[in-house]
Amino acid sequence: MSTDTDTDSFDFDGSALRRKRLLGKAFVGACFAATMVGIVALIALLVDVVTEAWGWLTWEFLTYPPSRFVENYNPANYGALDTGPGGIYPALIGSIYLIVLTAIFTLFLGVGAAIYLEEYAPDTRLTTFIETNIANLAGVPSIVYGLLGLAMFVRALQTGSSLLAGALTLTLLILPIVIVSAQESLRAVPDSMRRASYGTGATKWQTIRNVVLPEAIPGIMTGIILSLSRAIGETAPILMVGAATSMFAPPRLTQPTDAFSAMPMQIFDWARLPEADFQHVAAAGIVVLLTILLLMNAVAILIRNKYNRRR
């Protein structure tokens, strides 16, 4: 090792630096490897699921209710069936309705709470306490929200194991994240905009509605959609409120007290059945779930990009 402290001549060829450079390179290599582990594992998983599902994911799979018999899911048998093909339809609709209801609830509750905390709440210790705890709630395991939903909605409010109970529980689950991200979006609206509005004689509410919210809404929407895409894959909370593992008829949006199933439940149900071919069916279900999830994330990214370009 070169002694780089006691030489008084200029180290013109950088030989003293060589060891440090090598160390740097090794570190970059390690980081790259770490990144690759994650990516390779993810790709392997996706490839595995898609190959499992290949040939089993058909239009009929999306539009028919599930069946007890694994043969009914196999497209090769569709022609010879007397009961109709098996599919994911009720759980797919259940998941979509669940997300729609959850979106509506979180939009009002989350944005309402964020506006209150950010624009109206006095700057007191209590406010700080509440804000800190909302942030903490975001880390509570989802099964705890499931238990809460069971006690609060299913039992106390007597909603039964319904679509409504599921949606309300998922709302509780993602509300903290939605509130925090909405608060950040509101905070990002420049004060000069607010001042401009007050300067023209607008009231506080007019300022919030006409200037602050339009500026913040793309960020708020992005936060909500990303949270919803987390909620759509959640199994524990809806399991706790008693979602069915498998339903023959989809719930109705006009009847929020209908019993329901959702895709994660249905997939779980298929995956634990003994017949080997049910693994293909489960894989097909996972592909449907992942597709919806990726679509939602894509929408969120589109909104964010459109909004960024506009500035």
């Binding site: 905009m193 300067g199 023209t200 004689g201 500026e215």
Partner: peptide, 16 residues
């Protein structure tokens, strides 16, 4: 403020 309008140092039109 409806009687006394204001123009600021930095132009601050709304993004409208």
């Amino acid at each position: 403020r409806r009687k006394i309008g204001m123009v600021f140092q930095k132009p601050n039109p709304f993004p409208k």
